[in-house]
Design a protein around this nucleic acid. Sequence first.
DNA 1: ACCTGAACACCGTTCAAGT
DNA 2: ACCTGAACACCGTTCAAGT
Lengths: 204, 204
Amino acid sequence: MARPAQPLLNRDLIRDTALAIIDRHGLVGLTMRRLAEKLGVQAASLYTHYPTKEDVLDAVANLLVAQVDTSGFEHGWREGLRTWGRSYLGALAAHPNAVPLIASGTGRRDTFLAMANAVHGGLTGAGWPPRVATTISGAVKYLVIGAASTPFASGFADDVQVYLDRYPHLTQAHRLRSDAERIDQESFELGLSCLIRGLEPGPG
Amino acid sequence: MARPAQPLLNRDLIRDTALAIIDRHGLVGLTMRRLAEKLGVQAASLYTHYPTKEDVLDAVANLLVAQVDTSGFEHGWREGLRTWGRSYLGALAAHPNAVPLIASGTGRRDTFLAMANAVHGGLTGAGWPPRVATTISGAVKYLVIGAASTPFASGFADDVQVYLDRYPHLTQAHRLRSDAERIDQESFELGLSCLIRGLEPGPG
DNA sequence: ACCTGAACACCGTTCAAGT
DNA sequence: ACCTGAACACCGTTCAAGT
């Protein structure tokens, strides 16, 4: 066909399809050939729209981070941190296979900077000195990235019996996979609430 | 040569060499062929000692986690959490390129379970109910993984001028790379100290 | 500008063959 | 048991060629 009358591809379509493949088959399951196949096209065609696979992955990472809500700072730094942290974790937890893209991200991507800028502005606007604002936002980010990266559910899953006798302390709490999601939630909320409480009474 | 009188390889040598390559060339820079080359051997030879590349990476992950110090719980849960968190982060920060191995680890690896078991035992031994102990150790783990995964230094590095005008709030705090290490340190310590303080007065 | 087909230099892994 | 050499099925990416 060579050049079609109507373009078959565009950047958003490629990015969204890439995310769908990552969700279904994992990060390793995403190859340029498979991505092209799903789009009914040859792998080489993708390079008309993205210079490298890395750029496709950057686009996916930006898509996820763009959904993060930083509007909570309008209601104060406590609500701002809570809203930001929860929506950030929510955006990542919705696509667990894509989390490594964000976790080891360089921070050079547009939406990352926009998010960092909004958070930093929210904290300094509430009166926190810039240096402290950076430290605070770092701590929340660590909780989010940590919670999204190693959800409790990912370990201790299948062959529980194997280590039940070797690691006696783990038997109680780690047995049920059904508890994992609640544990993840509780650990993150514990960290977040302790951090906010530890920052009282606020700046100044 | 076929079978040499003295074996050329063993599992520890392969694992240590793999880590050295990861340190120098990154996780993507580690290939079975390059690993073999550095060992003066053919790639196929590696499969006598490790069934897959994945198993080599597991061995590297276990090597790092094995260095984590959980002995602090002998001096109470506060000191235990501090020692554990700091040595865990220290072990990962010494090999930043290997962090994704631990961050997205399945938790199925021996040393991971041993570490989790020690921490859980330390917390329950101090009087924390098993369920709460799991939540607490999760929060500390999130801080460690988050801090190791996205050190502040990794972002905002080179082309600062590009976004200085677009993200005004970031100009103050993000300009200097020399500040990055201190920021990383402070954010982690802030999260850790807030958590421990938030858990006062302790169990019961 | 946009897509194809074929090629390039790589991968992880397998396996018969040698000692 | 331990290593080799060659092969297999894959990669990401390039590029001349077509419309």
